[in-house]
Amino acid sequence: MSQLSTHYVDKYYNVIFQSSDKSDDVIKVPDDRIADFLALLQASSWDVKYIHSSGFNDYLKGEYGLADYQFSEAQLNALDQFSTTWSRNNAARYMLNPTMVNALRMGWGEALSQWTNPELVATGLSAGILGLQGLARGTAKGGGKASFKGAKYSDKVLRQMNKADDIYHAFPKSVDGYATKFGQWSTKIGADGKIYQWLEMPGSYGGKTGTFEFIKDANDLINHRFFNIP
């Protein structure tokens, strides 16, 4: 039986944290408070029950307030069809930010939760993804673009893109478009303590397999465009 969770998101509705406090509220953490929020979670990580308690989460709701976007009754009914808290949270993640990566995560989450039933596993991936497309916030195609819209490359990145023999930086610009559609967005704290948006997409180029990485700062400047080969 799945359990209700409060979903903490950034301004792009990327999920930062999900607590099992028996609530389905969506809380948007302001950009200037994400670092403090992550630090609070880390400092409280020794007491898991406290982090997932209604008292702790009610306090944070009072601090940040509810996001403009909340799950509808139809969405909550759909989420209740998922068999575990893990798969339910993956479905909620997809509804909030419907990228292809989140769709696949949702499908695999439900399929693996039902691994004892081969028939459910076989249908879980396609049914999970297709069944919720009409209930997601926007569309999978639009989710990434909304986060990337208006971004510009820094002078450093433009110089690197013009070095034809640089496999790590001079990959085709068309990759950027695919990444906005199918990549995974996340919010991370840089070594300088500032908030950055990461966009990552696995792929291949030049006979190598790795991850295409993009990092955007608060001024919508992309200063990191890199093909990370393990």
Rank of each mutant, 00 (worst) to 15 (best):
Asn14Tyr: 06
Met1Asn: 07
Val121Trp: 08
Arg159Asp: 12
Asp47Leu: 05
Gly138Arg: 05
Gly62His: 01
Lys208Ala: 07
Lys61Asn: 02
Lys145Met: 10
Met201Thr: 07
Asp58His: 00
Leu4Pro: 05
Leu41Pro: 10
Gln3Trp: 05
Tyr196Cys: 14
Tyr13Ile: 11
Ser44Tyr: 00
Gln42Ala: 05
Ala146Ile: 08
Leu4Glu: 13
Ser23Val: 04
Gly138Lys: 00
Ser204Lys: 07
Met161Glu: 04
Ser23Cys: 05
Leu40Ser: 14
Gln70Thr: 14
His169Pro: 11
Gln114Leu: 15
Lys141Phe: 15
Trp198Asn: 11
Gly124Cys: 12
Met161Pro: 04
Leu135Pro: 10
Leu66Met: 08
Ile229Leu: 09
Thr99Asn: 12
Leu96Val: 01
Ala191Arg: 02
Glu110Asn: 04
Ala218Thr: 14
Asp165Glu: 03
Asn89Gly: 06
Gly62Asp: 11
His52Met: 00
Leu79Ala: 06
Ala140Ile: 02
Tyr94Gln: 11
Gln18Ala: 10
Met1Thr: 04
Gly134Phe: 08
Ser186Asp: 13
Leu112Tyr: 10
Tyr50Pro: 05
Lys173Thr: 05
Met106Trp: 07
Tyr12Ile: 06
Ala103Glu: 08
Asn228Ala: 14
Arg137Tyr: 09
His7Leu: 09
Ser45Ile: 11
Tyr205Gln: 02
Arg159Lys: 13
Leu96Pro: 00
Ala136Phe: 05
Lys141Glu: 14
Asp24Glu: 14
Phe148Asn: 09
Tyr69Asp: 10
Glu73Lys: 10
Asp47Phe: 07
Ser204Tyr: 01
Pro202Arg: 08
Gly55Ala: 06
Thr6Asn: 10
Met100Gln: 11
Ile167Tyr: 02
Leu79Asp: 01
Trp86Ser: 13
Asp24Tyr: 06
Asp21Pro: 00
Lys194Cys: 00
Thr116Leu: 02
Trp198Tyr: 11
Thr123Arg: 08
Phe82Gln: 05
His7Ala: 04
Ile27Asn: 12
Tyr8Thr: 13
Ala78Cys: 07
Gly65Lys: 06
Ala146Arg: 13
Ala91Tyr: 08
Leu221Ile: 15
Gln75Val: 04
Asn117Arg: 06
Gly210Arg: 03
Tyr59Ala: 10
Trp46Ser: 15
Lys11Tyr: 00
Asn102Tyr: 00
Ser44Asn: 03
Gly143Ala: 15
Asp80Trp: 00
His169Leu: 15
Thr123Gln: 04
Asn89Arg: 02
Tyr153Met: 12
Gly177Lys: 07
Asp32Cys: 11
Gly203Asp: 06
Gly142Ser: 01
Tyr69Ala: 04
Gly144His: 04
Arg93Pro: 07
Trp46Cys: 13
Ile189Tyr: 06
Ala218Leu: 02
Gln3Phe: 13
Lys61Ile: 01
Asp47Tyr: 09
Arg105His: 14
Ser45Phe: 07
Trp115Tyr: 15
Glu213Tyr: 03
Tyr64Thr: 05
Ser20Ala: 05
Ser5Gln: 07
Ile195Trp: 07
Asn14Ile: 02
Trp198Leu: 14
Phe171Ala: 03
Asp176Gly: 00
Ser126Thr: 14
Ala35Tyr: 09
Pro30Ala: 01
Ile195Lys: 10
Ala35Val: 11
Val48Met: 03
Ala35Met: 12
Gly177Phe: 06
Ser44Lys: 04
Tyr153Glu: 03
Asp80Pro: 02
Phe227Leu: 03
Ala74Glu: 15
Asn57Met: 10
Ala92Met: 12
Ala39Met: 12
Leu40Val: 11
